[in-house]
């Protein structure tokens, strides 16, 4: 469970990215933070593992407030997947996955890329789960975007987190791959009982894969409901008052209704 209590973030240059947000991402649910580009999704998400330090307010991960003192310990419980994958391109796929457990495996020889056999087997297992077992010894930058994100998922799961953060995990891949990756992410997280916080700007993907949608615009929460109680029309009315660049079109096939699309990514 992740609780945000009165979180605000103002960057040193004066940009107020997030304003007084208080929400809860329930245990073992797949919550999507949905909002147009610039809404403050990334900023909000990053307060969870303190890659962004909130200006005020607090974040509780599984009931524990995250502070400067315990951030390393809490981070090992929180996995993260990035929009640009953030793999180390000239290391092998396997080593990239293994790097996920550096928080717990802190023997000096881990800095020489050496990992015990159980770890390597576990990394291979995860690579098999994301369908990349036969690519384990390739350089990470030789893989396609979709494959790299699968490695990103395996790396995040390698650390055995209880909470998983995903920042626009499919913004850098094509629509079909987006579907595959979100499905994989959702299945694996259900299986491993993870609490997921995932940011997205595509309405249809949010509706299709989330348990809960947390709507954000201009740094404020404007919606927080179970996805089953929502549909595209309702979301459109919610967002129409502020005409934002949300992506309403179907991302599965070619977007066939150009009027629906207002994409200012």
């Amino acid at each position: 469970m992740v609780e945000f209590v009165n979180i605000s973030k103002t960057f040193p240059d004066g940009t107020a990215a997030v304003h007084n947000v208080s929400i809860t991402a329930p245990e073992k649910e797949f919550s999507v933070i949905l909002g147009p580009s610039g809404a403050g999704k990334t900023t909000l998400l990053r307060t969870v593992n303190r890659l962004v330090r909130p200006s005020s307010g607090k974040v509780l991960v599984n009931g524990t407030e995250i502070t400067d003192a315990n951030q390393r310990q809490i981070r090992s419980d929180v996995g993260m997947i990035f929009q640009q994958f953030n793999l180390v391109g000239n290391l092998s796929v396997l080593i990239n996955v293994l790097s996920g457990c550096l928080g717990t495996h802190q023997k000096w020889w881990s800095t020489l890329y050496l990992f015990p056999k159980v770890y390597r087997l576990k990394a291979l297992d995860l690579l098999d789960r994301v369908g990349l077992l036969d690519q384990a010894y390739k350089r990470a930058d030789e893989l396609s975007g979709g494959q790299q994100q699968r490695v990103g998922i395996a790396r995040a799961l390698m650390q055995e987190p209880r909470v998983l953060l995903a920042d626009e995990p499919v913004a850098s891949v094509d629509p079909r791959t987006s579907q595959e990756i979100l499905k994989l992410l959702k299945d694996l997280c259900k299986e491993k009982n993870l609490t997921v916080l995932c940011t997205l700007h595509q309405v249809d993907l949010a509706l299709q894969f989330s348990d809960r949608i947390i709507g954000i615009a201009d740094g404020e929460i404007i919606l927080n409901e179970k996805s089953s109680k929502l549909d595209v029309e309702k979301l459109k009315t919610i967002y129409s008052s502020k005409n934002h660049g949300l992506f309403f079109g179907p991302t599965t096939e070619s977007a066939n209704d150009p009027q629906n699309i207002n994409w200012n990514q």
Binding site: Y113, L114, R120, L124, D125
Partner: peptide
Amino acid sequence: ARASFLSSYLKPAV
């Protein structure tokens, strides 16, 4: 069986 199958993909660490 799973461990044995995955082991076939293990290479020496060094």
